[in-house]
C-alpha cells in the first residue's frame, strides 16, 4: 500500500498490508501536481521504516541508478523502478543485477516483463495506470501477459527463436516461460485498484498479489477499505465473502477515466 506518512504506514500495517511503499505524494497527487517527480526524501522514508515492522519499499526514477544506490544504502527492503516518477533515462533501465536489494518493475506486456527480468528485476507488476482509480489498464496488461504466455506455451521448441526476436527478449528467458507456462518471478497487479472487487478481479486474472496506491488514502474511510482489500486478496475466489467485504465501505476514490487523462504513465520505460 502507498503511504506518505508514518501514521498512514501504521494504518496500512494494522490493516494487514504485507509491505508499504513510502512516497512523498501518492500517484493521484503526482498526476494532479504535474512537474518532475523524483525519489522521496530519505528522511521521510526513514521515518516510515521506523514506524512499522513490515517491509518498506520506495520508488526510483526509471534509469536513475544513483537514486537506487541511495535507497540501498539506507537498507530499503525493495526498490520500485517506477513509471510513476519522471523517467531519468529514455532508453535504459537500471542494471538491477548489480544491487543486493530486490527490485520490482512495471510491465504491460510479456516483452517488457522479460526485459525487466533480464535486467535483474525480482518481481514484476502490471503498470496499469497509476493514480486513476480506473482498473481497465491493469486488466489489459495482465490479460495481455497471460495471453502471450499461453501463446508461447503452445509453440514448438523451434518457434521460440523467432518469438524471442519479435518480442525483443532473451531466448533463454522466453524458453523458460515456454516450458513453465509462467514468468520466472512473482507477478503483482498494480495501477488503478480502488475496491476489494478490483483486487479480487486482478487475482482471478492470475496476479499473485496486489499493490494499492491512491485507492486507499484517497477514499472516504482508508482503514476500512484497506482491511477489506487485504481480505479480498486472500478470499479472491469467494463471492460470498467478497459481497460482505464490499458492503458499506464509504466513498471510493473519485478516479479518472482513461479518455480523460493527459499523461499515460504506462507508456514510460519499455
Amino acid at each position: 500500500m502507498d503511504v506518505t506518512s508514518p501514521d498512514q504506514a501504521k494504518i496500512a500495517e494494522d490493516s494487514g498490508a504485507c509491505a508499504v511503499m513510502a512516497l512523498e505524494r501518492i500517484p493521484a497527487d503526482i498526476r494532479a501536481a504535474g512537474g518532475v517527480s523524483r525519489m522521496s526524501d530519505p528522511q521521510m522514508v526513514r521515518s516510515i521504516q521506523n514506524a512499522v515492522s513490515i517491509p518498506v519499499m520506495a520508488k526510483v526514477r526509471i534509469g536513475h541508478f544513483v537514486e537506487a544506490q541511495i535507497l540501498q544504502a539506507m537498507h530499503i527492503d525493495f526498490i520500485d523502478e517506477s513509471e510513476v516518477l519522471s523517467p531519468a533515462d529514455d532508453s535504459l533501465h537500471i542494471n538491477k543485477t548489480t544491487y543486493n536489494v530486490p527490485f520490482v518493475c512495471g510491465a504491460k506486456d510479456l516483452g517488457e516483463a522479460l526485459r525487466r527480468i533480464s535486467e535483474g528485476a525480482s518481481m514484476i507488476r502490471t503498470k496499469g495506470e497509476p493514480g486513476t482509480g480506473d482498473i481497465i489498464q491493469a486488466v489489459r496488461h495482465i490479460r495481455l501477459i497471460d495471453k502471450q504466455i499461453r501463446e508461447i506455451t503452445g509453440m514448438r521448441d523451434d518457434e521460440i527463436f523467432n518469438a524471442a526476436k519479435n518480442l525483443q527478449v532473451s531466448y533463454d528467458l522466453l524458453y523458460e516461460a515456454h516450458k513453465t507456462g509462467r514468468l520466472s518471478v512473482v507477478n503483482f497487479a498494480a495501477g488503478g485498484v480502488a475496491t476489494p472487487a478490483d483486487a479480487a478481479l486482478m487475482m482471478q486474472l492470475g496476479a499473485e498479489g496486489v499493490f494499492v496506491g491512491s485507492g486507499i488514502f484517497k477514499s472516504g474511510d482508508p482503514e476500512k477499505r484497506a482491511r477489506a482489500i487485504v481480505k479480498a486478496v486472500t478470499n479472491y475466489n469467494d463471492p460470498d465473502i467478497l459481497y460482505e467485504l464490499s458492503s458499506g465501505l464509504g466513498e471510493a476514490m473519485v478516479g479518472i477515466n482513461e479518455q480523460e487523462i493527459q499523461l499515460l504513465m504506462a507508456e514510460r520505460g519499455k
Binding site: E13, G16, C18, S53, I54, K231
Partner: peptide, 14 residues
C-alpha cells in the same frame, strides 16, 4: 512464511 503480523491478523479476522 510471509508477514507474521499479517497472517496473525487474518487468522483472527477469518
Amino acid at each position: 512464511g510471509g508477514e507474521s503480523t499479517v497472517i496473525g491478523r487474518l487468522l483472527n479476522e477469518t
